Computed example of a mutant assay.
Amino acid sequence: MSQKGLDRRSVIVAASGLGLGLMTAPALAQGFPVPQGFVRFPLWKGKAPGSERVTVKQEEGLRTPASPVDDTFFAHIVTPTLTMLRPARPNGAAMLLIPGGGYRRVAIGKEGYAIARRFAQAGYTCFILLYRLPADGWAAGTEAPLQDAQRALRMVRNMAAKEGFDGNRIGVMGFSAGGHLAAWLTSRAPVETYRPADAIDKEPLHTNVAALMYPVIQMEGGFVHAGSRTELLGATPSVDRMKIYSMDQMVAQQTPPTFLAHAIDDKTVPVENSLSMLASLRAGAIPAECHLFETGGHGFGLTMGPEAAPAQWPELFLAFAKRHGV
């Protein structure tokens, strides 16, 4: 797909429809245009909550030196956003996609644009979440990413009628640390994390299906991804805090049917993270499906193995989602 500039009119229409206004020039002036067909708009009216002491400057760069122009990451996010891709042939459902990055950055290309294109082909209206990071000075600290995830889910549901999908057919999919945030959003009993700002915040925090892709789950024990834990909880978190933010400890009655996929040879986030989450889902009688692949390493996205063959998990997830009404 060619990389053309941002469709300014589409952004104006989308943002004005939400009452949010067009993003300011500094927020858009990253040097990397939004890929053709995507529309980006801010999550919050004005500044994000608790920004009084935030001094970081938002950055965007290529994920690797060899990455194509749309395979980028963001760091020090100060303007959290949703980036929407409409399907050519809608199936009446939507997906909220949460890329990973170890809670230190957000890899919006590989685990955002590419995934959205794949699921838009299957008919889903896709929304990519660019969320704030916990160590950047936000008043909410650890909770800042969850504030954005909650606001994003409510915004997606609020847009359902306008965009032509069913507000009761919404899935959430997260990758790596984004998988932790997706589990945090969907598995734990809802807890309000910010003061309501407008009618969007009256929308319920409910999802119909969740997908956790090579997710960070545990914050304690021998299979922790230390980088994610440090960014989220600091260098020396207490035992109680580690337990609270271990998502396998937070499965609740409200947890939706959950799909997991992980490579057994993942040396970054050990497969035991998915296995522990699966065990908790089963103990809670939550419908679940888990696919473990022999090879793939960490962050495999849409390709797997030494020959970078197309990954099988999208078709497996689509079948799972269909069974559960999404």
Rank of each mutant, 00 (worst) to 15 (best):
V216L: 09
T207F: 10
G178D: 08
M219F: 13
A197D: 12
A177H: 03
R188P: 00
P196S: 08
P204T: 12
L212A: 11
T193I: 09
Y194N: 10
H225S: 01
A182I: 05
L181C: 01
S187T: 13
V216D: 03
A197F: 06
I200P: 08
P204C: 00
F223L: 00
Y214W: 01
F223D: 13
L212G: 03
G221A: 05
V216S: 00
R169P: 05
A211Q: 06
F175D: 07
A211C: 05
Q218M: 15
M173Q: 11
A182M: 06
A183E: 05
G164H: 10
F165Y: 12
H225D: 03
H206D: 12
E192H: 11
V191R: 15
G174D: 05
I200N: 09
I217F: 07
V172P: 01
Y214M: 01
R195A: 15
I200R: 03
A177G: 01
T186V: 05
E192S: 14
A183R: 02
V224R: 05
T186L: 01
G221P: 05
L212Q: 08
L205C: 08
G178L: 03
V191W: 10
V191M: 14
E220I: 09
A210H: 03
L205F: 05
F165V: 03
T207N: 10
I170F: 01
Y194D: 11
G227D: 04
P196K: 09
H206R: 15
D166C: 07
D166A: 10
A177R: 04
P196E: 10
T193K: 11
I217V: 15
T207Y: 03
N208R: 13
N208G: 15
G171K: 08
E220V: 13
A189S: 13
E192F: 08
D166F: 12
P204R: 03
N168E: 13
A197Q: 14
G178C: 02
I170M: 08
T193S: 12
A211N: 00
G174Y: 02
N168L: 02
V191P: 06
L185S: 04
P196T: 08
G164C: 09
A211S: 10
E220A: 15
D198I: 04
Y194W: 12
E192T: 14
G222N: 15
A199P: 07
T193R: 14
M213Q: 07
G167W: 07
F165I: 00
P190H: 04
I200G: 01
G227W: 02
A182L: 07
V172W: 04
A210P: 03
L212W: 02
G167E: 12
D198G: 11
E220H: 14
K202G: 15
G222S: 15
R188I: 05
A183P: 02
F175T: 00
G227I: 06
L185E: 04
V216M: 04
F165P: 00
F223M: 04
